[in-house]
Amino acid sequence: MMPRFPCFFNDDSEKISTFSMKKVIYVFLFLAYFTPPLLSQVAVIAHRDVPVDQIKKSELLDFFIGDIKKWKDGTAVVIFDMKEKKDVKITFYKYLGKTSSRMKSIWMKNMLAGEGAPPKAVKTPRQMLLEVASTPGAIGFIDAKYVDKSVKVLKTIPIKK
């Protein structure tokens, strides 16, 4: 949410050596600029018919790196990625403990091993919503503010800067 003070002080671009009132004000202005106006969250969404209502982090990672390919009821898992590398995507993969490039290298390995193509990457949140809602067994992620009743939210992850 808010960067801790030591990190901020140690930033090369803005080094504060003396703690004066004026500088404190600058710090707050700087934080205000980077902090989103509302606490936004990433929602892990799935097709309405998937047999679970909640998902654990380890299961989610297994789905995304292709270790688990089917839901409990036998429906194939279909993963959707986001094209643009923005806060939502970064937050989501960070939550899984990976970077997006690492995810891609894993998918690359899967592809080379003949385990199928990499997930489809959508451009916009709306497209993501539409794809997940229309594909059975689909799972993806989206900024929580776009979520509607066409999809099922399995998990929410707070966005950290």
Partner: peptide, 25 residues
């Protein structure tokens, strides 16, 4: 900070290269 910048750029390019590799494969 220079190395940080360079590494970030490398990461992006690597991801991009992987994306291209999917198409290539």
């Amino acid at each position: 900070s220079r190395e940080r910048r360079l590494y970030k750029h490398f990461d992006e390019k690597w991801e991009e290269y992987l994306d291209l590799s999917f198409s290539f494969m």
